[in-house]
Computed example of a mutant assay.
Amino acid sequence: MKHVYTSIIPMRWGDMDAMGHVNNTVYFRYLEQARIEWYAFIGREKNAGMETVVVNAHCSFMVALTYPGEIEVRTYAGSPGRTSFEILQEIRRTDDPDTVYARGGARVVWVDRSTGKSSPLPDTVREMITA
């Protein structure tokens, strides 16, 4: 896996649940936010009419996150297939960067928006993932 992006996201008080820690569903929002920031960073708009679609998402919770604080989401890209690639991510606190609080990610498929069908990964994306 190749490290491709790191995102810093503040935890919000509203992210907490009745148990006093960040709700499990919010972790998926953190992963999504980091993934979308990475897409903007690599210039997804250069591939007009193309999008990624999540076909599988997962998250394993290691240590409970509690407010207040900021998290760091490290995003890694896996070996690309013809139309898809794996994104793996680690969530850490910025004040405790050596501890992995959660691991997650998604398999995404490159899709042509006009047809709704999968499309080969653009060479620029393939090169960025494998470089």
Score class of each variant (00 low, 15 high):
N47Q: 15
R74A: 14
R107D: 03
G49C: 08
V4W: 04
R35P: 08
P68I: 01
M1I: 09
A64Y: 03
Y101R: 01
K2G: 08
Y101V: 04
E32Q: 13
R82P: 04
I42A: 08
M1K: 01
G116V: 02
E45N: 13
N24K: 05
E51M: 13
S119R: 13
D95G: 12
D123R: 09
Y39N: 09
T115N: 00
G43A: 10
I71R: 06
H21I: 03
Y67L: 07
V4C: 02
D95T: 02
V54L: 10
E90V: 02
V22D: 00
A106V: 08
T83M: 05
C59M: 12
K117D: 07
Y5F: 12
E127C: 07
A57R: 02
Y76L: 02
S60W: 09
T83H: 05
Y5K: 06
I87F: 03
T52L: 14
G14I: 09
G104W: 00
V125W: 09
G43R: 05
F28A: 13
K2P: 06
M128Q: 12
V111N: 06
I71K: 03
T25Y: 09
T130C: 10
W38D: 02
N47F: 15
E45L: 12
S84F: 08
E32L: 03
T25F: 02
T66M: 08
V125I: 14
L31K: 00
A102V: 00
A131D: 15
A48R: 14
S119K: 14
D95Q: 11
M1Q: 09
A77R: 01
S7H: 00
E37Q: 04
V111R: 08
T124H: 11
M1C: 06
Y67I: 10
V4H: 08
Y67R: 04
V54N: 13
W13Y: 14
Y5Q: 04
D123W: 04
R82Q: 11
D96W: 07
R113Q: 13
V54M: 12
N24G: 02
Y39M: 14
C59I: 08
R12D: 03
P68S: 04
C59L: 11
E37S: 04
V111D: 08
D123M: 09
W110H: 12
I87D: 00
V111G: 06
T25D: 12
I87T: 04
R74P: 00
G105Y: 01
R113V: 09
V26C: 05
I87G: 03
L88C: 10
G20Q: 07
A40W: 09
E32K: 09
N23A: 09
F28M: 07
N24M: 05
E86W: 05
S60E: 15
